[in-house]
Amino acid sequence: MQTLIEARKLTKDFDKFRAVNDLSFEVKKGEIFGLLGPNGAGKTTTLRMLSGLLTPTSGEAFIAGHSMQHDQLAARSAMGFLTGDMDLYRRLTPVEVLAYFAKLYGVPKAQWQAKGKQLIEAFGISEFKDKHCEKLSTGQKQRVSIARTLIHDPQVVILDEPTTGLDIMASEFILQFIRRMAKEEGKTVIFSTHHLDEVERLCDRIAIIHKGELQHYGTIAEAKSRSGKEKLAEAFFQLVDA
């Protein structure tokens, strides 16, 4: 199966602190890949290197076969990226946000209008599509943010803690959409979260990182088997402490 995301020996230093060390993994087309680790493990730094926001000290990241270091525009075109650190333009409406990002991604007008309509329906944005984003609830904002991430129909979607701060209904909505996106539309998803139950429900494979080092890379079953634990949470603690 085609590899759509590849982290090749990624290392990132901040002055004398090494946040990520020699990290390598691959994610195949249509996979939902979970990136797990405690706070400060290096998850966000890894995702930022994959998205091109940070330049690795060494190593290279590839998105849909394009190097993020040497062919950045092509790599970014193939990727939709959303982290908890991102918000929406307060004085724009959801429709304007979608139009703005579609134009930045170079999507032809007819195409993004159709895609925008589809996303507005899929995410239940219709009722607040013309309100300024500053007036939206956290859940509504998150729906618009994910729709914004998908407006150019990317092959790869990177989501950093997409359900943080959402209520149970909004979280469930997002999780189901992630599953549909991967399994029905064949998109490749990297998904970082602290909620291990979400990981068990969604992820085909996982990477557990701790102190910048890769502790486990494989399926959830393999993690449980390696650690000798029945539950993912127990396996996680075992692998992180090892």
């Binding site: 998205s51 091109g52 926001l53 950045q72 525009l73 092509a74 970014r76 075109s77 990727m79 990226f81 959303l82 982290t83 650190d85 991102m86 918000d87 929406l88 333009y89 307060r90 990002f101 930045l104 991604y105 170079g106 914004r148």
Partner: peptide
Amino acid sequence: ERRTLQSLFTTPVT
């Protein structure tokens, strides 16, 4: 401060 700058830098824009 409004956390909107990062999303711009993940688009295929120089």
